[in-house]
């Protein structure tokens, strides 16, 4: 009896998960539809809204993204030197930092930062609008909420997140260089020289491509959670939290799969 009950719960959870993935997929398709078809139907996605979102999500996040990336670079240098000491190859730490920063850590740290900063804001904004009947008001005015609210954020995120990732690459590499030059005594110039030699365009692009995927995940999960908000302020709080946890989990899982297929 207990087993059957557990099985039933598992089944229901699975159905819910599949349903939710389907819903987010539909959200993506409808957003793309409005981005592409909207202008021909005289219902375009407003460029002003896209730029506004790019400022809020991207430009305003630059300082904190740089600080975090710098920290990650320093951290990698410390750990890398500590590990390499075992082999007496401290100077090789440059390779480790250069590759792991560009291929992995910049996009990951920027993704998590933006998920916490802007994915949650999106869920909260749309959730509040649902609760206040503002979404209904949009619909009766004839404004599709997905065109008006989701498509601009989706576009803005997928431009801004790769850009932030490249900036974070520089900050993290600089952080690594500063620590390494102090600890091991490699000059900043030599460090830069080594880094440029090691790095290929492919390495940087791997991070950038990941950031693009993270951007889509953050936008869809943020908006998707916002639209299902019910029950006043408490409900909005619930979907906001849920969107942050979900999008960070999705980012880490996606990153793992990406790395698996691209690195092997």
């Amino acid at each position: 009896m207990r087993g059957v009950y557990g099985l039933e719960r598992l089944g229901r959870a699975t159905v819910r998960a599949v349903e939710e993935i389907g819903y987010l997929g539909a959200l993506l398709i409808e957003s793309l539809f409005w981005l592409i078809v909207g202008p021909f139907r005289r219902q375009p996605v407003r460029i002003a809204a896209v730029f506004q979102q790019m400022t809020q999500i991207g430009v305003n996040a630059v300082p904190i993204a740089l600080v975090l990336a710098f920290g990650v670079g320093v951290m990698l240098a410390i750990q890398g030197i500590h590990t390499m000491k075992t082999f007496g190859a401290e100077s090789k730490v440059v390779i480790g930092i250069a590759l792991s920063v560009t291929r992995e850590f910049s996009s990951l740290i920027v993704g998590i930062l933006v998920a916490g900063r802007s994915g949650s804001a999106m869920a909260a904004r749309i959730g509040t609008m649902v609760v206040n009947q503002e979404i209904d008001a949009l619909r009766v005015i004839g404004i599709n909420p997905i065109r008006y609210l989701v498509a601009p954020s989706l576009l803005a995120l997928s431009i801004v997140l790769p850009a932030l990732t490249v900036l974070a690459d520089f900050a993290a590499l600089f952080g690594g260089a500063v620590y390494t030059s102090m600890d091991v005594g490699i000059s900043l110039a030599a460090y830069a020289q080594d880094t440029v030699e090691v790095l290929k365009v492919n390495d940087v692009m791997q991070g950038v491509n990941k950031a693009f995927v993270f951007a889509i995940l953050i936008a869809l999960i943020g908006a998707g959670n916002g639209f299902v908000a019910t029950g006043g302020a408490e409900g909005v709080g619930r979907v906001t939290t849920r969107s942050v946890v979900m999008s960070i989990s999705a980012i880490v899982m996606a990153d793992m799969m990406f790395t698996f297929f691209l690195t092997r």
Binding site: R125, M129, N132, Q133, E134, A137, V140
Partner: peptide
């Protein structure tokens, strides 16, 4: 058709932003 309809919701539903 929506151009020919107007709606005033219970709580107003003004866009707060």
């Amino acid at each position: 058709l929506r151009k020919k309809m107007g709606v005033s919701f219970q709580g107003g539903a003004l866009f707060n932003s």
